[in-house]
Design a protein around this nucleic acid. Structure first.
Lengths: 69, 69
DNA sequence: GCTTTACGTAAAGTTAACTTTACTATAAAA
DNA sequence: TTTTATAGTAAAGTTAACTTTACGTAAAGC
């Protein structure tokens, strides 16, 4: 799965820390998501998409047949 | 969060067991999602939306300010 | 009656999403 | 040169998504 979190964040000129505060998650969570260390929960994915004014499917690119976890 | 999993499944005339097999999850997972016992992972939400030919946002209705978990 | 089908509950286990804290690196700015 | 801002790693803990197994129930068909 690919994500455009970093690109969208940069477009908004936000730091990881600012983003984490808006979303009410830890800065570690943002770092890990941007680096692809794990996948966001559905709720967090939704909040990110809302903030970046796009759909979840626009923010995350799902590549065929991924495992659930 | 609300979900239309059950409605979409019925539209397709699928049983919970059939759906679970297509998605490669347990039947328990389908039951629990339909009953709102917990929220699907992003990947599972995506697979459900794909199967039902709709977007994640169409399949799940997010209500203001939900907690992450 | 008995069997099958579909849906449901309960409980115990695994794993990964997320937190918290502490520490490192680097570039810019004072 | 020292400080500040931003991004990063590491490690240990909590919680919830998901699994597995076993059992319960009600309707439909034989």
């Amino acid at each position: 799965m690919k994500t455009f979190i970093r690109e969208k964040r940069n477009e908004k000129n936000m730091t990881q820390e600012e983003l984490s505060k808006v979303l009410k998650v830890s800065r570690q969570t943002i770092i890990s998501l941007e680096k692809g260390k794990y996948k966001p929960s559905l709720i967090l994915a939704h909040k990110l998409a809302q903030l970046f004014d796009c759909s979840i499917e626009d923010l995350f690119i799902f590549e065929g047949d991924e495992n659930l976890e």
